[in-house]
Simulated assay, not measured.
Amino acid sequence: MPRVKVEVDGVTYEDDVEPRLLLIHYLRDRLGKVGTPIGCDTTNCGACTVLLDGMSVKSCSVLAVQADGHQVVTVEGLGIGGELHPMQRAFHQEHALQCGFCTPGMIMASIDLLRDNADPTDEEVREGLEGNLCRCTGYQNIVRAVRAAAEEMRQAPEREAAS
């Protein structure tokens, strides 16, 4: 069995894994990272999106062995010191969830979107989140949340520089 060494949410893990084990199952079943839901298992819904070396990936389409030597961040690893990440906070404040099933994947994909485009338009948010499905909200509050988080994240460096 292959041995993997992967950093997940700031903690390094070394495990023997089946070559065909999907990253989503490694995260949930081996590491207890159940904040990342299993959705469709076919890459269609995006609920299982995590960050792999800072880029969003659908963890149902990545093998655990492919994460060997890499850094994975789940929705559970976003907050620092008990504080919510600005994207998590914005999703809460803008009521960008209903059932919550898609929320972890939406948050992770949104963070990746802002890495490439710090000030997206509504249309750019919608395009950037293509492949992450929500069956409840109609997306308007999700778009609003992403834009609110983008604003907060852009202002954070300015506040730090001023102090």
Rank of each mutant, 00 (worst) to 15 (best):
E127S: 12
G35M: 08
V72T: 10
G105S: 08
G105L: 04
M106D: 01
V57G: 05
L114Q: 08
K5A: 13
M87E: 06
E127Q: 14
D53H: 11
E127A: 14
Y139N: 01
L97P: 00
E7M: 14
V8I: 13
A145L: 03
S61V: 01
R3D: 13
Q66D: 12
Q140F: 03
P120I: 01
C45D: 10
K5E: 15
E14Q: 14
Q98C: 12
A149P: 03
V4E: 06
N44D: 14
L113W: 02
A96G: 15
G32V: 11
R135F: 07
V34F: 03
M1E: 09
P2M: 05
A109Y: 02
D15A: 14
L114N: 09
T103G: 09
S163T: 07
S59W: 09
G138R: 06
D15P: 00
G35D: 10
T121C: 02
L51I: 01
L129G: 06
V146G: 04
D122V: 04
D112N: 12
Q155S: 07
N44V: 13
E127K: 13
V72Y: 09
A67E: 03
A148P: 01
L51N: 02
E160L: 14
C40K: 07
G35P: 11
V65N: 01
V62A: 00
T36V: 15
M87G: 06
G82A: 11
I111K: 10
L63R: 02
M1R: 11
H92F: 10
H70W: 00
V73D: 14
I80S: 14
C40W: 09
Y26I: 05
A47R: 06
R28C: 12
R147D: 01
V146S: 07
C134S: 05
R147K: 15
E7K: 15
E158V: 15
F101W: 06
L113S: 03
V6A: 12
E151V: 07
H70N: 12
G82T: 10
G54W: 07
M87C: 06
A150C: 06
D116A: 12
V4C: 03
G10F: 12
G10S: 12
E123R: 08
T121Q: 04
E7D: 08
Q93F: 02
E83Q: 08
L133S: 02
G100N: 09
Q71H: 13
V125T: 10
G39Y: 10
I111E: 13
M55W: 05
C48N: 11
H70F: 00
A148I: 00
R159W: 13
V125K: 10
P2N: 05
C99P: 10
M1T: 11
D9S: 11
D9R: 09
E158H: 05
A90N: 05
E130T: 14
G82K: 09
P2Q: 04
D68E: 00
I80C: 05
G46N: 05
K5R: 15
G138M: 03
V143C: 05
H25A: 06
L133T: 02
E18Q: 09
S110N: 04
K33N: 04
D15R: 15
P86H: 06
C45S: 10
G131R: 05
V4P: 04
G100H: 11
E123D: 13
C134K: 04
R89I: 00
L21T: 14
E124V: 01
H95W: 11
C102S: 10
I142W: 03
A67L: 06
T121A: 08
I142K: 02
T103F: 08
S56F: 02
C102G: 10
E94C: 13
R3Q: 14
L78H: 06
S110D: 04
